[in-house]
């Protein structure tokens, strides 16, 4: 097995995969720091599940999957905002049951994708992602989305940090916490969308939570945590792409799913960071 198979960087699908993986990992890592600190892992997970219906819908309507995922996760973010994210943070049964209904609708849409549109791989692409098979133009759109998301995150950074420390205190200091929460959920929806493009809707939590939780174990300041999380995420995403590319030689004629490698790497990174902290 060669370290870098010839053609790794010159292959167009690989370039596209690296670009999408980078965009998703950088924004999700940075935004994920606040998701973890605010105890909103559940909200991120819920948005991802809801966005799956959007991904399935995109096939049916023939629109860009980016648009499909994003429109539904924004809708989900608005619903969460209306419900109050603090309450949904627990194991709220109502939220779980409504999500179940959403999954049922996703099932229907995916079924229609296959039967009406003949998109046989829709279920895999939407739920588990298929990074090597994304349309070529998507890489640039994802990179732009990530850039916009990172700028937005920087813009709300200080009030968001204060509100994550203590919501009441932020209010007393004059932060419009409602507006802040809504903008933050919108950015979260964008991060989830990009991650769903990379590793699929039900796996996108990995890029959002994993690098951030690992970075929080190691970093000494919030900015350092965001930077480290973005880098760890990037490492996992690119490492996953590389391993998947290599896997072509392991089981002849067959590429292992990129998403498997990315999620596995994220778990390894998290476990290593936990052990490093304890040591």
């Amino acid at each position: 097995m060669t370290l870098l198979q010839p053609g790794f960087f010159s292959s167009l699908p690989v370039q596209n995969a690296l670009l999408i993986g980078a965009g998703a990992a950088l924004l999700s890592g940075a935004a994920g720091v606040f998701t973890v600190l605010r105890g909103q892992s559940f909200a991120g997970h819920a948005l991802a599940d809801v966005s799956a219906a959007g991904g399935a819908m995109a096939y049916l309507l023939g629109i860009s999957p980016l648009l499909g995922f994003f429109s539904l996760s924004v809708l989900g973010a608005l619903a969460l905002e209306a419900l109050g994210t603090r309450r949904a943070a627990g194991r709220d049964l109502a939220a779980g049951i409504v999500l179940g209904a959403g999954m049922g609708i996703t099932a229907l849409l995916l079924y229609l994708d296959v039967t009406v549109k003949g998109s046989a791989g829709a279920a895999v692409t939407v739920m588990f992602g298929s990074l090597f098979a994304t349309p070529p133009g998507l890489g640039r759109a994802v990179a732009l989305g990530a850039l916009a998301g990172l700028l937005g995150l920087g813009f709300i950074y200080r009030p968001l940090l204060l509100a994550s420390l203590d919501g009441e205190l932020a209010k007393a200091d004059g932060v419009n916490t409602r507006l802040l929460g809504a903008v933050y959920l919108l950015l979260l929806a964008l991060a989830v969308t990009l991650s769903a493009m990379a590793v699929g809707a039900i796996l996108s939590t990995a890029l959002l939570i994993g690098p951030a939780a690992a970075a929080l174990r190691l970093a000494r300041s919030p900015v350092a945590a965001m930077g480290l999380a973005a880098l760890l995420g990037l490492g996992c995403a690119w490492g996953g792409v590389w391993l998947a590319y290599q896997s072509y030689g392991w089981t002849p004629g067959h590429v292992w799913p990129v998403s498997f490698f990315i999620t596995a790497l994220v778990l390894v990174v998290y476990a290593a960071a936990s052990l490093a902290r304890r040591a």
């Binding site: 973890v36 892992s41 999620t263 778990l267």
Partner: peptide
């Protein structure tokens, strides 16, 4: 919560 979510996703 984070650890469990990551194990599940993996």
């Amino acid at each position: 919560d984070a650890a469990t979510a990551l194990v599940l996703v993996a």
